[in-house]
Design a protein around this nucleic acid. Sequence first.
DNA 1: GTAACTGCAAACCTTTTGCAGCTTG
DNA 2: CAAGCTGCAAAAGGTTTGCAGTTAC
Lengths: 148, 148
Amino acid sequence: MVNKQKNLDEMANLFKKNGIKNTKQRQRVFDYLASCNQPVTADAIYDALKIELLNDDRVNLSTVYRVLDIFVKNRLVTKTSFGNDYKAVFELYRVEHRHHLICVRCNAITAIKGCPLKGYEQSLSQATHFKILEHRLEILGVCPKCQN
Amino acid sequence: MVNKQKNLDEMANLFKKNGIKNTKQRQRVFDYLASCNQPVTADAIYDALKIELLNDDRVNLSTVYRVLDIFVKNRLVTKTSFGNDYKAVFELYRVEHRHHLICVRCNAITAIKGCPLKGYEQSLSQATHFKILEHRLEILGVCPKCQN
DNA sequence: GTAACTGCAAACCTTTTGCAGCTTG
DNA sequence: CAAGCTGCAAAAGGTTTGCAGTTAC
């Protein structure tokens, strides 16, 4: 990880801005999420940190869940669920939101460029009088590799 | 339920066509799903049948799950998960597929007319070489009632 | 110093499974 | 009659919680 100190500082700021106490565990979960370009399960985060860190530095799975919860509540992270099993997956909230193509055979996840619903929410809001907050779109299919 | 016998016959045919053995339990679950205009959880189906039927006629929750599984495999029913909790919800497969608006406060579910992704899948398929099977779209917001 | 966080173990909730007995075709 | 379905109870898998000890501010 290049420029570690800078990252730490940025994280500390981000946490402070959101009233989130700055702990090692939170840094680690956040840092790991930042290094992923895909939605990941709580379990995957737990495993990744388990491997990366010394035994005594492990982040407990409950802590992972609690930390994720806080991140979600503060809108640093989004929580979704998709695919064939219905585990929750987490992803760093990015200003430019994304959708994914999921392969039903190998579960590979591919991000889609652009959002086909741009503009749609507004017309929907007018039609239904809902105040629209967000949408979740996932597309299921078979990836090129698995088509054989 | 009007025209009960006709419904039963239709169901029997539908089951036969799909090689699904025709049992009381399956009829009941299917019938209940047909009476819902919304996606429902396995538990909700179980509860509904529990109330509707005599004690001895209850459909066991495991059976509900097993029956739903069969319906899903035979594409009579779709399984999804959405909203704030991540339970699976089931809905009769309708030729014209639908999406829903979900109120994050009261969990009310409103069906949306039309699909904003018509035509999108094809261009996506060309761009990614995925064979696209289906998509899942749910929109979250606050319903008019809860906006106060 | 104190409020908040963490680890651990146990609880919880939805979903799945093994088995013995019953139903359907 | 045989194959397959159901109920029951128990297990499984993901997620949450209570509590006692530790840490950040």
